[in-house]
Amino acid sequence: MARSFSRRWPERPFSLITTTSHHVYAPALPSNHHAVRVARLMALTHNTIFRAFNAIYAQAGVVDPSKTKDVADFMTFATFAIAFLDNHHQCEENIFFPMLEAQSGTPGLMTHNVEQHRAFDVPLHALRRYVDEVKSGAARLDAAALRARIQDLAVPLEQHLHDEIPSLLELSGKLSEEAINTCYKALHDEAEGTTDPFRIGPLVLGCQDSTHLMDGEMIQFPELPFRLVPYLVDHIVSRRYAGAWRFCPGTFHGQPRETAFFEFGKSEASTRRKSSTSRDEILMQAALDSGITRAKRRFLVDRLATPVFVLMLLFSLYLAVAQYAANLHLPTRGKARAWVNPKLL
């Protein structure tokens, strides 16, 4: 049976964050205050998580359980999404929250956030276990079962990820801008240092919407050192787990991905039935366009292989110099970990 193609963002069951509401929770703060910046970046990180899980939810009913490759790639994508969520909260609990409490001199300042983490431990574990069972072949992919586990997770997780934003804005009354920025940088460095870029890089870029507004503004996220990064991810980094990225809701450039795995709603299906263009013609044109695009990409990759390799070397050098420069002024990730909890070393 022919599949339909969709170019819309999946919107259930998680609702995206569109504002930090800093005019409500911290009306005295200017938009360029570090507390506002950190709150916005955190909100965009949370939206990345929402889009990933919404994509899993939306595609669960379309992936054919009998197609081993599709199921394996789908579960790989789900595994990476869960790992990203796990790592995010582990970095918060091990580095970010303790540093905020230490800098503010207020023990227990972030206790409520940690308690909210514990509120979704059980449903997250149930989802992780089900995905592992499907990957191992111990269970057959069942859309209803997968979606039920995501729905169980959705309520406490969405509540926490929305609630955390105003709690970060409130830090402006307890910490200096420099301290807030230092703590967030330590969180960012810890996250980068404890994740696989071949897994998390494509996942994060593939779950961005370049048109999304935060507080009515376009905020660059993730913060990239230069504009070629999405192209490097698209043509090089993503190849290791290429099959999994078919299930990303977006391209690596922030546009909604054209995918055969998203289900249409009734209104969309009705509109398509009324179209004068047949489904076969649409699919044939899509296949033709896809083939042309792949051919162009192969040509570009062949032509740009050497300069891209040089750029990667320069990028590696840039990262090394940047890390060295950062170490002159800020604690390294290892020092930050030792400061918070020496047992983590």
Rank of each mutant, 00 (worst) to 15 (best):
I200L: 06
D189H: 11
D209C: 09
E170N: 11
E164L: 09
V155E: 14
Q208F: 04
F221A: 04
A191L: 14
E164H: 10
E177V: 02
R199Y: 00
I165M: 05
E158A: 13
P156A: 07
Q151C: 06
R199H: 02
C183Y: 03
I150D: 06
H212F: 08
Y130F: 12
V155Q: 13
L124S: 03
E177Q: 15
I150Q: 08
E177A: 14
E178I: 03
H212Q: 14
E133K: 14
K185E: 14
Y130W: 02
L157M: 13
I150V: 12
R199G: 00
Q220Y: 05
S172R: 04
A154S: 10
D121R: 13
F198E: 13
F221Y: 15
K174S: 11
L205Y: 11
L153M: 09
L187S: 01
L124Q: 13
L169C: 11
H160P: 04
G216A: 00
S210L: 08
A148N: 08
E170P: 00
A145D: 13
D163Y: 09
I219G: 08
L175F: 01
G206A: 01
E217Q: 15
L124F: 04
I165L: 07
M214K: 01
M214L: 15
N181A: 15
D163V: 02
V122C: 05
E170D: 13
H125W: 07
T194W: 02
P166I: 09
S172I: 01
A179R: 12
G173C: 05
H160N: 02
L146K: 06
R147Q: 15
D132L: 12
V131C: 07
A139Y: 02
A144C: 03
I165G: 05
D163W: 00
L187G: 00
A126N: 13
S136G: 09
P197G: 03
N181Y: 08
E164R: 10
S172H: 10
Y130P: 10
Y130K: 08
C207L: 01
D209R: 13
D132E: 15
I150A: 09
E158I: 02
L175E: 06
D189Q: 13
T182L: 15
A138L: 10
P156R: 04
C183G: 05
L205N: 03
D189S: 13
L146R: 07
K174I: 03
D121N: 11
A126K: 12
L175Q: 05
A186W: 02
A138I: 01
Q208P: 10
E164G: 07
S167I: 03
Q159Y: 12
R199S: 02
G201Y: 08
E178K: 14
E133Q: 15
G193Y: 02
D215N: 12
V131E: 09
H162D: 07
L124D: 01
H125P: 00
F221C: 04
K135Q: 15
L124Y: 03
P156V: 08
L157Y: 11
F221N: 07
Q151A: 04
E177S: 14
S172N: 05
R128N: 10
F198W: 12
S176A: 11
D163G: 01
E158K: 07
A191T: 13
G206V: 06
D189P: 02
S167F: 11
T195A: 03
G206Y: 04
R149F: 04
A143C: 07
G173S: 09
C207W: 02
L169H: 09
F198G: 00
A148D: 14
L205H: 06
L175S: 04
E190L: 03
E190A: 12
E192L: 14
R199F: 00
